[in-house]
């Protein structure tokens, strides 16, 4: 999966699940302060990302460190790469 694909899928989650306008979805956008995500949304964000990327991140400690969209892109890339490595 390319970085661009990760960005597109992640942004689609924010648009569809959280009704956030495309224009606000820049990599440095703070998901809590700029995009209005709250504690309930985080649960749904995890569910939506798991579904969209076919990963299991619910118990990943690193989820707690996510602040910006770029953090999500990086986190997903890391998880996907790890998954691909393990499959070889």
């Amino acid at each position: 999966m390319t970085e661009q694909e990760i960005i597109e899928i992640t942004n689609r989650v924010f648009e569809e699940s959280f009704e956030i306008e495309k224009e606000k979805l820049h990599p440095q956008a703070h998901i809590f302060q700029d995009l209005g995500i709250d504690s309930l949304d985080v649960v749904d964000l995890v569910v939506a990302l798991q579904k969209s990327f076919g990963v299991n991140i619910r118990n990943e400690e690193k989820v707690r460190n996510i602040r910006t969209l770029q953090d999500i892109y990086d986190f997903i890339a890391e998880i996907k790469n790890e998954k691909e490595r393990q499959s070889y």
Binding site: L40, V42, V43, D44, V47, Q50, K51, N56
Partner: peptide, 10 residues
């Protein structure tokens, strides 16, 4: 599948 992980928070 007796699976709780796909339930939304709301």
């Amino acid at each position: 599948e007796r699976d709780l992980t796909r339930l939304s928070s709301s």
